[in-house]
Amino acid sequence: MDFLNALVMLTNFIIIPATTYGAQLALGALGVTLIYSILRFSNFAHGDTMALGTVVTIGITALFQSWGITLGPLPTALLALPFAIIVTSLVMIGTDQVVYKFYRAKKAAPIVFVMASLGVMFMTNGVIRFLAGVKDINFTDGERFLIQARAFKEWSGLDQPLALRTTQALTVVVAVIVVAWLFWFLNRTRTGKSMRAYSDNEDLALLSGINPNRVVMVTWLIVGILTTTAGVLYGLDKSYSPFTYFQLLLPTFAAAIVGGLGSPLGAIAGGFVVAYSEVVVTYVWRAVAGYVLPDSLQPEGLLQLLSTDYKIAVSFTILVIVLLFKPTGIFKGQSV
């Protein structure tokens, strides 16, 4: 019984939240990795683009709700998502035309792109603050729980509750669909293959008649899908605030680098590595220990390795370890 209780606790407090968070990070990291492999720079505006997509979704959701359109048990935001994706992708393609295209034509050093992306990051940040302010926004509606804590306790007869929020299940389902679609797109379609070819060997891609402008545009389009989806899922699961989204940048980068920059598979693996590490390291293990350890070994402290205030240190530490020992990441990335 104790063991089962411990298992339920682990599921409730580690597996479910970390898997959800991991899926969100993976989507974000996929975007980072795609931009890196096609446009060859680390996009610092990524976190704020996620925020932008989310803000647009929040706006459209509010509009739908005011018209009385909802999705019943599912969050209305899901209905707004496709429209927000279109808006975000258009903004990104526009940004590319106005900002990055110029440096691409000049074949500028990657660091110039990074700097430009920093400028874009702050402008986007200004825009989202203008649109939605700086406060936390909760925009989920519909059924809150798939499995309710009390219902689970009554059903199982265990002391520990297990709750599964709709948004958590939704995150995983949506992420799986998006990732499956992305891999199908990259590996099975002509356009997807041409993107991989461009990433592999730009000159030869040009010789083969692949249109670089089209590749870049499709990339931003896909990045728009990925960032908006990641941002909205994160916001539904937790809440939206410009500062939190800015801080998502580091774990997202860490995930992409851990997996190997440029490797889509790596981005997904990296997302889960970072998410699980963060949750495991900041979790208070005392109650779990109470179930599995004999009374004589009961710990005194909280058994929390790191306070949640230092969440960001976890992704940073992972990043440093990877940079020190394996700069190409788990799945060999493009370069160091």
Binding site: S42, P110, L250, I312, F316, L323
Partner: peptide, 20 residues
């Protein structure tokens, strides 16, 4: 390492120092 990595690493350490 690649020039971007210094940017990312410094971004991280700054957040951590302020967190501390």
């Amino acid at each position: 390492l690649r020039s971007d990595y210094l940017a990312i690493a410094t971004l991280g350490i700054a957040e951590i120092i302020v967190a501390v």
